[in-house]
């Protein structure tokens, strides 16, 4: 076993959306570098339970960096210091003895706090519902090889489709914009031949919904790309803006 570390955690505690929150300080004297960040919180919660104090609420599920459920702002950075890494995949060997950490939830009006470090990200689902799909019912598909798709296009679509919907991009953006999230889906579907018939309608509807959900505007800070655990490129935002412009001019739709 490697040597353990002593850490100080300042954790955001907030009972619900309407009550004011504040940081609470905890000391953990024996953090193993082999633990994941969330396992460290498990250990802390176990000790809180022993002491009869209510445990810290935080979201997580797969702990493999793919479900997009986890997300903590660690010392001001969504998902913490390691690039291309979700909170659940961050391991304590990235920290050192004596470090003091500040843990906060994603902060955005479009993501209200539910409790402690848990926020409500259903606004993302509503953006997808607005048009983030290809309208093809079960049963009506042609043979999968009937539409050849060049390897490069397929790979690029996959780069965009890799988004896990965690919301780190919003948390990182000074304007709390959801452009990278929206552009990733618009890019994924807009690049593929199957996505062409609805391409311009899709982008207009999704962007309109994004605006309605109280996400901020994009002013090209690129913090989203830097914090994205899947490395999704802001090039997709440029691509979306082009589609949006073209859509508005050549294929305008009525938005209610």
């Amino acid at each position: 076993m490697s040597e353990t570390m002593k850490l100080v955690l300042n954790v955001w505690r907030q009972p619900d959306a309407t009550t004011k929150g504040d940081f609470e300080r905890f000391e953990i004297p024996d953090v193993s570098p082999d633990m994941s960040f969330l396992e460290m919180l498990d250990v802390l919660n176990e000790r809180l339970t022993q002491k009869g104090q209510e445990t810290i609420a935080f979201d997580h599920d797969c702990r493999e960096g793919i479900c997009g459920t986890c997300g903590i702002v660690i010392n001001g950075v969504p998902h913490g210091p390691q690039k291309l890494t979700t909170t659940c995949q961050l391991h304590m060997r990235k920290f050192k003895d004596g470090d003091e950490l500040w843990l906060e939830p994603w902060r955005s009006t479009a993501f209200p706090v539910i409790k402690d470090l848990v926020v409500d990200r259903s606004s993302f689902d509503r953006i997808i519902q607005a048009g983030g799909f290809i309208s093809v019912g079960a049963g009506s598909a042609p043979d999968a090889n009937a539409i050849p798709i060049g390897k490069e296009v397929a790979e690029q679509a996959m780069d965009a489709a890799a988004c896990i919907g965690c919301g780190a991009c919003v948390a990182a953006c000074p304007n709390a914009s959801a452009m990278l999230f929206t552009a990733a889906k618009v890019g994924h579907l807009g690049l593929l031949p199957q996505g062409q018939p609805e391409r311009y309608e899709r982008v207009q509807k999704m962007v309109a919904t994004m605006d309605n959900e109280n996400f901020g505007a994009c002013t090209n800070h690129a913090e989203c790309e830097a914090s994205c655990p899947k490395g999704i490129s802001i090039d997709f935002i440029a691509m979306m803006n082009r589609d949006l412009l073209k859509g508005a001019v050549q294929h305008p739709i009525e938005l209610d």
Binding site: F133, G139, A141, A144, A157, A161, L189, L192, Q194
Partner: peptide, 8 residues
Amino acid sequence: QCAAQGVP
């Protein structure tokens, strides 16, 4: 079905 939905 999945290819038609845009699964890359």
